[in-house]
Amino acid sequence: MPLFYEKKQLVIPGDLLAEGDYVSGDSTYKTDGKIYACRLGLVDYDGKRVHVVALKAFYIPVPGDLVIGNVVETTPGGWVIDIKAPHLARLRASDVVERSFKPETTDLPSIFDVGDLIIAKVVAYDRTRDPQLSVREPGLGKIMRGQLVEVTPTKIPRIIGRQGSMVGMIKRETGCQLTIGQNGLVLISGRSAEDERVAIMALRKIERESHTSGLTDKVTEMIRKERKAVESK
């Protein structure tokens, strides 16, 4: 049962990663007991599971995911929302409007209009139908302020860190509120533009160096340095 690559080695689609009794994880596929990479990325082994952390990928909705989307259309029954997935998502008006919803009397654009950004949760998706969203939970709904940063969806777990250690640190150090959409969009809202700038820098650093170890400490150091530099001016 050989493994053909070391952990964190760069592989391209079609590279043979492992043979024999292994389980195919993200960005890999298995045929005839052989596991191949199907995306450009870094190999990782997790017991019997072989997977590739793709350097670039697109978002595939999973029920329960928090996502940030852009309203692209209002229809009589609800809204069409772009969540940067292969399919446009739907948000039903009857799930948003309190009590009885009547398409002929309710003014939907007054709730969400085209161009609004919303935080929502994926409630259903199975590839045969468009993803369904919901905003019926505290913290969901229209985004009123802040800055959006886009990262590759595969880097989101790194931004969150182990049990949220990375986001927790960024929130503490910069004093910004971070809302992480699983679809690769991160909303940052801080007390000042300066706080937000530092938080964005931190995210960019994580995206660039996501494969290195001890990243949390490096980012902490960078944020503190950046703060000091600004204070001394």
Binding site: I12, P13, G14, S27, Y29, Y36, C38, R39, L40, A54, L55, K56, A57, F58, T152
Partner: peptide, 11 residues
């Protein structure tokens, strides 16, 4: 296609 992150069996 590989650069776009589209899953491929091989190049």
């Amino acid at each position: 296609l590989a650069d776009a992150g589209i899953p491929m069996r091989d190049l």
